[in-house]
Amino acid sequence: MPQKQIGNATIDVDADGFMTNLSQWTRDIAAALAKEEGIGELTAAHWKVLEYIQKEFKENGAVPTIRRINKTGLVSTKELYDLFPGGPAKKAEKIAGLAKPVGCV
């Protein structure tokens, strides 16, 4: 399994760079991954989304869709695309240390 060095930490990743072991995830790793993804500094609004999808994953074993995130009232679809330009679901999940999204919506 490929590994990746981020600062002093080593993380296990898949072929697309998604983390495969959530227990290795830290906020510093998230910040580094966000920079790599071209998101820049993570703001409070980013963290709100990242924490929500991690919570959903831990509770339901699946990450929420963009539609679901919009429906919770956490952030609107527009805001989500603004926060994570160039593919919000994929980028948010990557930064949150979760697997690549598998759904079509």
Binding site: T65, I66, R67, T77, K78, Y81, G103, C104, V105
Partner: peptide, 18 residues
Amino acid sequence: KLGFPPVPEYIEMIADAG
């Protein structure tokens, strides 16, 4: 059930997505 919205909501979602 699979998470796909009905047509009006889908249209709104696509527009919101840019």
